[in-house]
């Protein structure tokens, strides 16, 4: 191989001025504060609106693609693989299997939680393999959760449901 600039180690230097915590405390850094307040109201769309309505009625709805045969949840208006419209809705069970899980000690802002929570991907019974949703587990010791554990949805009382993913409070192990 040719020689050229082989003797240079890269990067030869690195620039940048680190801000130490001390600098912040002593207000040595010039900061300008801003708190943007941007509000949104998201439409749930054709398919997810129907899904949320189902949740309000205590049902988990999925869709079936008549081309590839996949039963999908959350439901969608079109099969993204076949790129065909969906025309078959199916009611799935409110039971499933823990695909994977985590015991979380932090909130959305990375602040510590007082009590850890168990989050999981739950593959829903009646849907195709590995078709899951993100949700939480409850009524179970974190130490006892395992992948493959069978679980059942714990619903909010009917009068408290509002057509939201949180109409399911959490999923609990199925005994036996």
């Amino acid at each position: 191989m040719a020689v050229g600039k082989k003797d240079i180690s890269c990067p030869p230097y690195v620039k940048g001025r680190e801000i130490e915590l001390e600098d912040l405390k002593e207000k040595k850094v010039t900061y300008v504060e801003d708190h943007p307040d941007i509000r949104y109201s998201f439409t749930a769309g054709q398919a997810i609106s129907k899904f949320l309505k189902g949740l309000k009625e205590g049902k988990i709805l999925g869709v079936k693609c008549n081309k590839c045969g996949r039963v999908m949840v959350p439901p969608r208006e079109f099969c993204e693989l076949c790129f065909k419209p969906i025309n078959e809705w199916v009611e799935l069970k409110d039971t499933g299997v823990v695909e994977t899980f985590s015991i979380s000690y932090i909130d959305p802002d990375a602040r510590p939680l007082e009590e850890p929570e168990i989050v999981a991907v739950i593959a829903i019974d009646g849907a195709s393999p590995h078709m899951g949703i993100l949700h939480k587990l409850g009524e179970v010791d974190p130490e006892k959760v395992y992948i493959g554990m069978r679980v059942k949805a714990v619903w909010k009382p009917e009068e408290e449901r509002e057509g939201a993913i949180t109409d399911i409070k959490y999923w609990k192990p199925i005994e036996g």
Binding site: Y40, F42, A44, G45, I48, L52, P74, T100, F101, S102, S104, I106, D107, P108, D109, A110, R111, V119, A120, V121, I133, L134, H135, K136, A164, I165, T166
Partner: peptide
């Protein structure tokens, strides 16, 4: 913490009501 900005990459209808943290997907 920059994690606060990551809140807004989640699906607004199905995921955000569960108050997710980005670390979750890695843990899962």
């Amino acid at each position: 913490h920059p994690q606060s900005a990551f809140k807004y990459i989640w699906d607004p209808i199905l995921d955000r009501p569960l108050k997710p943290n980005l670390i979750w997907i890695f843990a899962l």
